[in-house]
Amino acid sequence: MNIDVQQKPLGAVLFQYDIYPEKIENVGKVKRIFTANGQYALKETTMNEEEAHWFVHVMRRLERIGFHYVVPVLPTKYGDYIVRYGSQTFYLMPWYEDHQQFRSPVYPEEVMAEELAKLHGLTERTQDYSETVLEKSFETLKKRWAYRKLEMERYADKIEGNVYLSPFELTFLTHFQRSIFMADKAEEHLTLWYEGVKEKKSFRSVLCHGKPARKHTCFDKYGTAYFLNFEKAVLDTPARDVAHMFRHFFMSRPWDEQEGRHWLQIYEKHFALYDEERHLFVSYLAFPESMYQMADRYMKRDGKSTELHYVTRLEKRVLTLNRVQRFMNSLFSPENENR
């Protein structure tokens, strides 16, 4: 779709970059700007002042530490990295074509795992140990999970009383006990993480991308990946980012535990997780939140999606949960424990 540059607020925003577009197209949340001097991607988003400062700080830090696997944010002619227009926020990047086919065999998951590990390695920082902060994080997550479990138990109790079960309800009940088992396993690993950190009296943080996923990565024709969208970047445990990326991998294509271990090995070749971080990573993966989210959506269904849609989605998530269980078991099998 072609867009007129005269329209608000595009013209006033691009003016600050001295960019004179020949054509503008909408590509998802990004505007693709064609000019005589090349193509650009203009991202529109919402950020409060604090988030905007943090985002600029993150982009500058990535530049300073020499992390090149990132689509850079271009400054305005005044040196600003973001432009505000009312409640909207914009930032500009050079347009990177995202390739699906590469000149040599490339597996995007492997490249992403490697580059995320490099990002974590470059930004690793040992945090001041505070038992209060640690305990608070542990208790908060434990409480949240306990609350979610309780909510789902109530839902299961409620639908068990139905004379006729819908296909979704039947599928949910069939796999509910497995979800409880996984939730307990998640809590078990969370406790192991907590005890491990308490024993070590130290924990580390890295710059987490926040949403590492294929759609937030551009691949060039040689298979090099460039991360974009650091809007949700945060200083946190590497386990958070790795779990997010693995959840994304699990949902995007079929996989098995060997492949899962292979991805983790690639990540750990560049940035090895500590034992307690592995437990945290596994606890994040094991908790059956994705299955519970389907139940939430089913409860709030508005008739726009069919019963079949909900059932197939739920089954896919149950399948992933089963694979996560096998992945988890293989990671903590005696032979792997002695790695």
Binding site: F15, Q16, K77, Y78, G79
Partner: peptide, 17 residues
């Protein structure tokens, strides 16, 4: 510019920033 959200004749930066 930051406070009013209006465009103004700010100093354009050199290639060295």
């Amino acid at each position: 510019a930051e406070n009013t959200g209006c465009l103004t004749d700010r100093m354009i930066q050199t290639v060295r920033g």
